[in-house]
Design a protein around this nucleic acid. Sequence first.
DNA 1: CTTTTACTGCAACTCGATTGCAAAGATTAC
DNA 2: GTAATCTTTGCAATCGAGTTGCAGTAAAAG
Lengths: 136, 136
Amino acid sequence: MQTEEEILKIKKVKNTAVRTVVLRHLLSQEKAQSLKDIENALAYTDRSSIFRTLKTFEENKVIHSIEDGSGMTKYAVCAKGCNCDPKDLHHHFYCTNCDKTFCLFDVPIPKIQLPENFKLQQANMVVKGLCDNCNK
Amino acid sequence: MQTEEEILKIKKVKNTAVRTVVLRHLLSQEKAQSLKDIENALAYTDRSSIFRTLKTFEENKVIHSIEDGSGMTKYAVCAKGCNCDPKDLHHHFYCTNCDKTFCLFDVPIPKIQLPENFKLQQANMVVKGLCDNCNK
DNA sequence: CTTTTACTGCAACTCGATTGCAAAGATTAC
DNA sequence: GTAATCTTTGCAATCGAGTTGCAGTAAAAG
Ligand SMILES: [Mn+2]
Ligand SMILES: [Mn+2]
Ligand SMILES: [Zn+2]
Ligand SMILES: [Zn+2]
């Protein structure tokens, strides 16, 4: 596992106090985090600073965002080597019972047969259901 | 193609003036419509009435919703015979240039290998890129 | 016809997301 | 070093999609 400093250096994002704690928090969590999740976890950091940090991270491929339909965008740290290209795309799982969203890094998206002349750039693939913990 | 009346009858949704025009509008459009899209198209129908109509339609499987990451939920009429079960799931395409979202009815979701003990209920699969018209 | 239930329009409100601005901090120029 | 410049941060205000309470209207039931 890389440290926050290493990741930011690789992705060419300047290291600041807010960026370090936001990235550290994201790395420490198993499930994807919303802006509010992060705000709640970091009591002394302003929401707008976290918001702008997330934008910066996303622009620089430090993290990727997930629209899981819960009304709040979730964020997760990109895997090592990820460049957010089509080849790096993977599915996400949203548990409709416990509200947990996370990356299925092991479930890459299969080749999708798009209509003639369409170009794939990105994807937001969210599978919904019950996680193992809630499916009992 | 079924008429609005036929669809509502099959799905056991009572026919009303607002429901008819909303469904007619959705049927007339190639791309999935947001609440605002419908509001703009139906000058004399109140937003909240359209909103509640969409909720009713979705609960009764007349339409399904698509979270395409644009900030507005889009809605599309379900295909004939669709029951919104996992077997009826399909991908959606969002054009990052012209902002058009639509169903890829011909691209069903392949079997996704979920982790042990996970249960699939629904899915929101949005592929993003350029549509044929914008990819020139 | 009267009562009950469902639908609609309007206004107000919620809440996640976003922005303007000034202060604080970091970097570069001299 | 100091001054000028650029970047980051916190605060408050704002935006906008979505949602709700309520009263009036329409439809269904009795
Ligand atoms: Mn992911
Ligand atoms: Mn669809
Ligand atoms: Zn769960
Ligand atoms: Zn397009």
